[in-house]
Simulated assay, not measured.
Amino acid sequence: MSLLDALNSLDQINWFVSILIGIAISVVGNLITPAAKDLLNKQSEKRINEKIKHLEQVKEEINNYAANPLRLISYVNESLLQMFVLFAFANVLNFIKYFTDPLYLLTQMITVMLYYYAAMIALKTLSTCKKVRDINKQTTLINEEIKKQKSN
């Protein structure tokens, strides 16, 4: 047997092995597909139910604030105090950086995180106030979204 004959027989064996592996992969894929589909459907249903629950909580929250304006004022005041405390800590950290050069980067990172968290509180508070101000529109939008999620 020459070298060329040996290479030709190797080529035929590679095709045969490739076909067997391809068949095995397709059989395994067909067996796994229903289980994967069920898993994805369960996760999708779970996300939809979580979103519906969140929307109902938002609707209840804005209805409570609209029914009791003092609670809304208290919420806004609490948010302002939280932001004030965060800004105070951030400013203290900015002041510390002048005395401790080795901790400069760390204090800057913490300062940025405090400012970011304060901004997120402000945005959430503004969003809640806007929803309470336009409660009829928001309730309608939330109800439509819940219906849409339930129909999917």
Rank of each mutant, 00 (worst) to 15 (best):
K51M: 10
T125D: 07
F99P: 01
D38P: 01
N68H: 10
V112R: 01
R47L: 15
L40H: 12
N143P: 03
L114K: 02
K137P: 04
M1E: 13
E45S: 14
I52H: 02
V112I: 11
K150S: 11
F84K: 05
M1Y: 07
L141I: 12
E144T: 12
P69L: 06
F99M: 08
H54Q: 14
A35I: 08
E60R: 13
I110Y: 00
T125Q: 06
E145D: 12
Q108R: 11
A24K: 04
F89Q: 02
R133S: 13
K147G: 07
T100G: 02
A88I: 04
L72G: 01
I135G: 01
V112E: 03
S18D: 07
Q82T: 09
L3W: 13
N136I: 05
D5W: 02
V27E: 01
A67G: 10
L10M: 03
D38T: 15
V58L: 10
N152R: 08
F84Y: 11
V92D: 01
N68Q: 06
A66V: 07
S44N: 06
L10D: 08
E50Q: 15
C129W: 04
T111C: 03
S44I: 12
T139G: 03
T139H: 00
T111W: 00
K59L: 11
L31M: 13
K51F: 05
S26Q: 13
P102Y: 00
T139S: 09
L123E: 05
I110E: 00
A88E: 05
V132W: 01
T33Y: 09
M83H: 10
K51H: 13
S9K: 11
S26L: 06
L123K: 03
Q82R: 04
K37R: 13
I25V: 14
V17R: 15
T107E: 00
N77L: 14
S79W: 00
L141V: 12
E45K: 13
L93R: 00
F84A: 11
I23R: 02
A6T: 10
P102D: 03
V112T: 11
M1Q: 07
L39T: 15
A66W: 08
P34I: 15
S44W: 07
T140I: 05
A6M: 14
A6Y: 05
